[in-house]
Every structure is written in C-alpha cells, then in structure tokens.
C-alpha cells in the first residue's frame, strides 16, 4: 500500500520552501497517488521564465519504486519527448532510491533542463539538432518555452496576427517568430 503518511510529510516539506526551490506540488482532488508538479525554468537557459507542469503518478509501492513523471507542458529538450513529455532520467528508472523524494526528483528535472544529456536521448530529433545545430536548438527551445510555458505573455497566435496585420505574409511571420524564440520585436526587425 502507498505510504500515505510519508507522501503527506513530503508535501508539507515541499510547500514550506517552494519559493526558494522553484518547485511545487498540488493535489489532484482526493487521490493522493495522482499529483501535479510545477518547476520553473532555470535561469540562463532557453527555458528561463517558463513554468512547466509535470504529471506525477505514485505507484502503490512508492517510495520503494520510483514515481512516474511526465511533462504536461510541451518542452523542446533532448531528454524529454517533444511528442508526449516522457522523461529519460536515471533516477526515475533504475537509479531510483527510496531515500529520494518527490522534491529531489523535481529538482533533478530542473537540473536536467539546465544540463541536457544528448548522448542518452529520449527524443532523437531534438538530440540531433542539439548536437549538430546548437543555435537552432536554443531558439527552438526558447520558442517552445515562450509558446507553451508562459501563461502571462501574449499567446503566439496573437503575435502572429499582430504581425500579419502589419502586412507581412503569415508563413514568413511564423518562421521569423520561431527563429527569434517568439520575441515579436526581434521578429519584426527581421521581417523589415
């Protein structure tokens, strides 16, 4: 049976210093085995400023078996599937130890965002781009962060519409926005 008491203790612990750590967990209704985690994109990475949602399923034998984690927010990263958010991280698989916690796991995900391991990829396309064309990788990752991980900023469709209204063709606008990581001002410069 799931060790409810330990999970509750973990949740209290995470809640206590979520401001400093940049990770937090919320409950999905009554079911304590289904949680939702949030991590903020690490600074000085293409993920900076983004907020990433992670789906967490706790197996009945938790903490003796690792929690199942998956990105709900779309993210462009060699070790995270761009299709379904599946994560390739050793501590979530064979290197899991019962002494690790949900917090340490989320912090490890944050660390994974700042230091990708393209030699052990989950998403081969992203990994190939990371290895062969790093600048494009960075701008794509930034674009994805802008587009999918920022709730506060203007949605990408709105930016597209704004630029199209200025008289640029839509396809060019989209390409420009993508290459500039979603920054509408830079895109405008590029288009002019």
């Amino acid at each position: 049976m799931l060790d409810v008491s330990r999970v509750q203790k973990e949740l209290v612990e995470i809640d206590r210093d979520k401001r400093i750590s940049g990770v937090s967990i919320t409950l999905h209704g009554d079911d304590i085995s289904h949680l939702s985690g949030t991590i903020s994109g690490p600074i000085e990475t293409p993920y900076e400023g983004g907020t990433f949602q992670i789906d967490i399923q706790l197996p009945a034998s938790y903490p003796f078996e690792p929690p199942k984690m998956q990105f709900l927010t779309k993210v462009w990263h060699p070790n995270i599937s761009s299709q379904n958010g599946a994560i390739c991280l050793d501590i979530l698989k064979d290197q899991w130890s019962p002494a690790l916690t949900l917090k340490t796991a989320l912090l490890s995900l944050q660390a994974l965002l700042s230091s990708p391991a393209p030699d052990d990829p989950q998403d081969a396309v992203v990994a190939q781009q990371y290895n062969q064309d790093y600048p494009t990788f960075v701008s794509t990752a930034r674009y994805w962060t802008e587009t999918f991980a920022k709730r506060s900023s203007l949605g990408i469709e709105e930016k597209v519409q704004k630029l199209v209204e200025m008289g640029f063709p839509e396809s060019q606008v989209r390409t420009a926005l993508e290459t500039c990581g979603g920054d509408e001002n830079l895109a405008l410069e590029k288009l002019c």
Partner: peptide, 13 residues
C-alpha cells in the same frame, strides 16, 4: 547507534 531514537529517512518516522 548512539542516539535514543532514530529518524528513518524512508518512512520519515
């Protein structure tokens, strides 16, 4: 061994 009660880092009891 020296302490009177020990906190288990797994179950946190």
């Amino acid at each position: 061994r020296s302490t009177s009660s020990i906190m288990c880092n797994i179950c946190m009891e």
